[in-house]
Write a protein that binds this DNA or RNA. Structure first.
Lengths: 197, 197, 197, 197
DNA sequence: CATGAATGAGCTTTCATTCAT
DNA sequence: CATGAATGAAAGCTCATTCAT
């Protein structure tokens, strides 16, 4: 992948709509050209092919997730408070990049097979959250869990799946409102108040 | 879809491996023929095409999920206890049909667009769990949540994502052991014991 | 390469004209389809691609050369007489398959890189002629040469190059008349009669 | 074709390796750029395209052939002796420009269609040799042949084909040693000494 | 003068799909 | 009923070629 000029990068992000709608295989290179205004051959000049365009978009989303999560982690407060901030930050990315997020979800299987994407997912979300859980156990704001990474994966799943669900329903329902569903679930669980027995 | 004979159905399930590995678009009808031993034209005789084969497999998994969840719901105990049983039941399906589950995950975007699959997902998991949450609020074993369906979706995401994660890692780690991660998360949340506030 | 049915084989030979005229790279698969009446996809069903079609044609020519040469070798007479017969036989093949021969000549470089073609060239011409030269040295009808195989290659070059030259000139001049040029050259050389010293 | 600077000409000769190995169509302009260190667009600045580069190389070889043959023709001695010198001279060119010669051989069909190349081939070898044969008939050192030009073509074929054969085999075997195979063949033929009848 | 950047124009190749047997 | 043979319809990808700088 040749170094992608700023303008090209911006234009390519427009392809996210296509990928979100039809997935990678349902999107012809020609479609991307039409949607972005960049000639097919020029796309090939900068990218190896449409899969690399997809990967480029995924990377952009994950970079945004990474930054948002990192900022949340640096916020003041207990680990529990920061975990709450992380969930909000994550939801913010879904709100900011709804199409790209849906594209990532659409081709989840393919994304999981792109080594670069796996690495970025770990770095942007799973590692930081797992480490945050460990901190919470230390500062007493969170319960110690047996497997912090798997717990982080479960949280990732809860957030992503419901966010995509809300985006797909396409009721005006803001994704951010999900925080009222996810955060209590993750922090307090479903048992009635007064006794997490 | 012509009525599929028992033997044909069984053979077609072998295609799950291919779909799990490469997704629908990465799998040629010819590949399915090679993997199942059923000639390409014969596949066309019984199915509309490979997408219907995929859909057939997805349905089988979702039927299994539906039955497992339903059985768990019928088990005795509080709603909270039955929710725990539902999670276990769901994980059991991942353990029993790992390849088909991964296939469903790989083509999640496509699955979400197949009306039949959406309906089945609702019927097999989301509706029952949402209704269970309402019951829990009534019998006092669970906290009342604002949006039971979204909460159900979040639980589905937590279970599926981590189950797929474990299957993909392919350490001998049994998927079922996830119950020790998910169930406490869902029921108690991450706050330290003694006060979910 | 799937087993090529008789009729398909016959039709494909029509592509020789194209290859003779423009070479392999100058001939589009579509051209072959148009010229033979066989749909592009059907060509691909039987052959790996146009290169295999070319190779198929080359093989047919070389098979013809092989048979002609072999028949000449079996003719009665001294080695010298049979060498003369071999040259005639070789020229006959150019006369019978002018287009395919020209195609072979056009893509000589490529042909030389196809292992199958090299093997067939050796088997059809070089080996038999080299062995004939050795016989001639024994029966006294030919002079012993230091390197029979290279001599065979030189004869092959003399015959082919002049035959192609005549075909390309496309004067009605029959290729077979070349025998009056080549045979004396090869048998007697250019020195004046009466003393090959 | 803009006037090609000395250095550019030298660098372009390096493309002969590529053409010898893969032919014109198998060689991308980009490959030539990589092999010669001359940027693609710069090649276009000096040549019409890669075909002209090929033609340029061919011309260089044929010019060398022309000079060598001419020098041999000017050497003292009978026509027969000079014919022998011509063959040696021709072989020398194969030894000096092995890659370019192989390139010419690889794209023989294309070369035959380039008018410039045909003209040069005639001028460099066929015409002089044909005329030499006529001289030989006059000075009595060579037998009179019916068609001197075709005989010249046959000699050209014998020399080229065996030279390329030796170069392709890539045993250290010097091309020049071919003179011991070709010259006796052409001058004396294959009949046993003492009677070319 | 030279060249990096960009692209128009195709061609090979692949496959889902059909249908005669 | 089942299936081998055949093909229509794309789509990915490549490259020669141009041109602004």
């Amino acid at each position: 992948m040749r170094k992608v000029p700023e303008e090209m990068a911006t234009k390519m992000m427009a392809a996210a709509d296509l990928f979100a709608e039809r997935g990678l295989d349902g999107t012809k290179t020609e479609d991307i050209a039409a949607a972005t205004g960049v000639p097919k051959a020029t796309i090939y000049y900068y990218f190896e092919g449409k899969e690399e365009v997809l990967s480029f978009i995924f990377s952009a989303v994950l970079a945004a997730v990474g930054e948002a999560v990192e900022a949340a982690l640096r916020s003041p407060g207990t680990a529990a408070e920061r975990l709450s901030a992380v969930i909000d930050a994550h939801l913010h990315v879904f709100a900011l990049h709804p199409k790209a997020s849906q594209a990532l979800h659409f081709d989840l299987g393919r994304a999981a097979r792109l080594p670069e994407i796996r690495t970025q997912t770990n770095a942007a979300f799973i590692d930081p959250v797992a480490s945050l859980l460990a901190q919470g156990a230390r500062d007493g704001s969170l319960r110690a869990v047996g497997n912090p990474r798997l717990t982080a994966v479960a949280i990732l799943g809860a957030v992503s799946t419901s966010a995509i669900h809300v985006l797909a329903l396409d009721t005006g329902d803001p994704v951010l409102s999900l925080t009222r569903v996810i955060t209590p679930l993750v922090l307090n669980g479903l048992r009635p108040e007064g006794g997490n027995q």
